[in-house]
Write a protein that binds this DNA or RNA. Structure first.
Length: 430
DNA sequence: AACATGGTCAACCGCCTAAGC
DNA sequence: TGCTTAGGCGGTTGACCATGT
């Protein structure tokens, strides 16, 4: 159970706001500004909880709110953003000036979604995480130890929490589409995987995916497991770093990425946590400069909470990326038929009673700090501007740009896609 | 006219994160 | 480092309204 709702305090009003209440809140905020919601009701003479006041202000009273029908352009934007971001209403709202997340959410649920369903361009069963946060597909397939289940089941009911990462990682573990390396195959054999398919198909039993994936991640931690970014991506990352002005403190292992804005690409190096995209030790890629305090020269990307989690996050995000490209960008011209694959929740690792690592969901905000944005890429631009096609195989050569007005962005996107998919595919297929 | 049904949307609820201590 | 809590988020609810029977 969460905290006791503040609105449960005896005597506080609930339900629809009266014009008098609106006026009190409005005039108080006009006088004193926003914030301090906890004590605002008393000061403003309202018998409401602060949360209710904040919501009323944010969704209704704020003077800069645009009300009324959504324009076709706005609807198009919502559909595009939703195809990429899923139900991240607040993020979507940031791209629709003067619209609130609540309004957008309502509009989607009551109009757009139905419209797309009628057009056959949207299927609820393709979006299990969007309509029901606690759907029946289980994270416990990954969280193998019951001790750790409470955190994985933080939702309101007792049903196991679905996470996209669970699906993704299970896919990684269980997919027959991905050719698994001998290294993985031997891991699976040792850990009881195999899915009954025999050695030939190298299929991983989902129930073993947690231990398997952790083993995989551990394997990747070894120094030899380097994934080298190609020059094209280095260039993209280098460009991105130029726009970056922040300098994040670096004094620990979690400083995992650095890219110079030096126009000489040879000095650009990137390493992403244990996955080690890039090679810090390689002289031809330059040495990382984690001690630099100059934000214009370097950018650091926070790692996941643990190296192995970082590996798994990386795998999940790359699979999500590929799937997004494939399903979202190819499926339709109006974005309506896209099949959303979210990487909004990756995984963290924890320990069960025996000390074995198990997987559990971590917050979506990890995603927002993760990889692409922290590298300086805007995911929306990345996925919106570049129209990339791909086959089912994670093969560099199968990616091609099929149309876009933004030549340079497109090239950058394509290069990034190629490299990421290549890295991912190479590492798995070995 | 009365009731049933369905759509809309403001508001609530529970959970999460991050900041402050 | 761990605890507390304000603020924020997304899912859900229920009041209200329009339309159908």
């Amino acid at each position: 159970m969460g905290r006791v709702p503040c609105c449960n305090v005896l005597g506080l009003r609930k339900g629809a706001w009266t014009p008098e209440e609106d006026q009190k809140l409005l005039s108080y905020i006009q006088q004193h500004g926003e914030g301090g919601w906890r004590f605002l009701p008393q000061k403003a003479g309202l018998m409401r909880c602060g949360k209710s006041c904040r919501l009323r202000w944010a969704n209704y009273l704020r003077p800069d709110i645009k009300r009324g029908e959504f324009s076709p352009e706005e609807e198009q934007t919502i559909m595009k953003l939703h195809a990429v971001l899923g139900n991240r209403w607040s993020t979507i709202a940031k791209n629709l000036p003067r619209r609130t997340d609540n309004e957008i959410k309502n509009h989607w649920n009551t109009r757009l979604k139905k419209r797309l369903i009628e057009m056959g361009k949207y299927h609820d069963h393709d979006h299990p995480n969007e309509s029901r946060p606690c759907s029946t597909t289980t994270t416990t397939q990954l969280v193998s130890n019951p001790i750790d289940q409470p955190k994985a089941q933080r939702s309101t009911n007792n049903s196991p929490t679905t996470t996209t990462s669970a699906h993704l990682l299970n896919e990684i573990a269980a997919s027959t589409k991905l050719k698994l390396s001998n290294r993985l195959a031997s891991l699976l054999a040792r850990h009881g995987g195999g899915g009954g398919g025999g050695d030939g198909d190298k299929k991983v039993a989902v129930s073993n995916s947690a231990s398997v994936l952790n083993k995989v991640a551990t394997t990747y931690l070894k120094p030899k497991s380097h994934v080298i970014l190609n020059d094209a991506v280095k260039e993209v990352l280098s460009k991105s770093s130029q726009a970056c002005s922040e300098d994040i403190d670096h004094g620990n292992e979690n400083v995992i990425a650095n890219s110079s804005n030096n126009t000489d690409n040879s000095s650009c190096s990137i390493s992403i946590s244990a996955l080690e995209i890039g090679n810090n030790n390689s002289s031809d890629m330059g040495s990382p400069s984690p001690k630099s305090k100059n934000g214009q020269e370097s950018r650091y990307v926070h790692s996941a909470t643990s190296p192995r989690a970082g590996v798994l996050n990386g795998m999940a995000s790359k699979l999500a990326l590929v799937k997004r490209c494939r399903s979202t960008l190819l499926s339709s011209t109006d974005w309506g038929a896209s099949s959303h694959v979210s990487s909004s929740e990756f995984v963290d690792e924890s320990r069960d009673a025996a000390g074995s690592a198990v997987l559990m969901p971590v917050s979506p905000s990890s995603d927002e700090r993760f990889l692409f944005q922290d590298m300086g890429f805007d995911p929306q631009e990345l996925f919106f501007e570049g129209i990339v096609s791909a086959t089912d195989e994670f093969d560099t050569n199968t990616f091609s740009v099929v149309g876009d007005d933004h030549e340079h962005d497109q090239d950058d996107d394509q290069m990034l896609m190629r490299s990421l998919c290549s890295n991912f595919g190479d590492e798995l297929a070995n």
